[in-house]
């Protein structure tokens, strides 16, 4: 064996330690976040007997579905070291077009066509970021401003029309006592996890986020792959726009506004690095569920909106605090006397 062994051995100690726990940082994170959500639901039973029930779990899952779908896309963009601020505008776009073109019914191809349009918006973002080399923060913000303005002009201020039949069916019907959207979101989580963690595409996203120069040298097509992440994000946002339309039976121009920050927060709470290259979709799902649970529990307790917001912000900071590398290192490190 080579003489680099001694050095390797010194480092091996830390590597073995990391593996010693048998679970990765990401997994630990996801377990903590899901655990907190469950504790919160169970705990809320003590506050009010109406809470902590099966039906509340279903409500949480249904409400979390929007955030789960959104933060999947946001998570992919964050994974490649970007950030998608155009999400609210794309949600609105999806919602406005769905009510405008397919309100009440609609041909089978209209909804996919709308998603394709949203995908084009994502491609525009990707083009700006990878070809024009505009910082993602600015590029997606510009897209957001442009799109919001276009939606305003298109609707002249008031979106008309009702929900397409398919979206109403997705959001309003139940099957075996469980809302159809819950089945949908479970399938989505499975598919999303596979896409991010187990496909070649996902592997390339991690590589780009970890070190884009090195990924390029290794033969990863940085531009196209990064652009695809933005496209997926925009399609997710557009679909959430449709889901919201199905849920509320109509679109508004501000329907996406309240989803940008939670979409980032869910990813961050789920343990991803905002700088890219690290994270898992399961953790993000946990973050989305935790945020939604928190929202419903606080609302049920009857706290006013302000305090609810304060607590949400506090949770984000606390989550960040506990997810620092050092904190994890401490958890892993065996206690020495």
């Amino acid at each position: 064996m080579s003489v680099s062994e001694p050095k390797g051995a010194a480092f091996q100690a830390s590597a073995d330690l990391r593996r010693g726990g048998g679970i990765s940082r990401e997994t630990t994170n996801a377990i903590i976040v899901f655990g907190l959500s469950i504790l919160l639901i169970l705990g809320s039973r003590f506050v009010s007997p109406a809470l902590g029930s099966w039906s509340q779990v279903l409500t949480v899952l249904m409400l979390a579905s929007f955030l789960i779908v959104l933060s999947f896309g946001q998570g992919l963009v964050i994974l490649v070291g970007g950030l998608d601020l155009s999400i609210p505008a794309v949600i609105t776009l999806g919602g406005v077009l769905a009510t405008g073109w397919a309100g009440g019914g609609g041909d089978w191809y209209v909804l996919p066509a709308i998603l394709a349009i949203c995908g084009l918006v994502g491609a525009f973002n990707g083009f700006g970021v990878t070809v024009l080399k505009i910082p993602p923060f600015i590029m997606t913000m510009a897209t957001s401003i442009i799109l919001a303005s276009a939606a305003l002009g298109y609707t002249s201020g008031t979106p008309r029309g009702a929900s397409p039949a398919a979206m109403t069916a997705l959001m309003k019907t139940t099957w075996v006592g469980i809302p159809v959207v819950v089945y949908f979101v479970l399938l989505f989580v499975l598919a999303g996890w596979l896409l991010q963690s187990r496909t070649v595409f996902g592997r390339k996203l991690y590589a780009i986020g970890a070190n884009d120069q090195a990924a390029r040298v290794a033969g990863v097509a940085i531009g196209p792959v990064t652009t695809q992440a933005y496209v997926v994000s925009a399609i997710c946002a557009g679909f959430v726009g449709m889901m919201l339309v199905g849920y509320a039976n109509g679109a508004t121009l501000r329907m996406g506004d309240n989803y940008l920050l939670p979409s980032i927060a869910a990813v961050v709470i789920g343990g991803s690095s905002i700088l890219g290259g690290r994270g898992s979709f399961i953790g993000t799902v946990g973050g989305a569920v935790l945020l939604t649970t928190l929202g419903t529990v606080i609302a049920a307790i009857g706290l006013e909106q302000g305090w609810r917001t304060v607590i949400e912000g506090g949770i984000i900071v606390a989550a960040l605090f506990f997810m620092r590398e050092e904190f994890f290192a401490r958890l892993r490190r065996p206690k020495r006397s």
Partner: peptide
């Protein structure tokens, strides 16, 4: 992001 949300909340309170 966390401190912003906390401040927004306080403003609402």
């Amino acid at each position: 992001l966390g401190t912003m949300i906390v401040c927004q909340g306080l403003a609402l309170v």
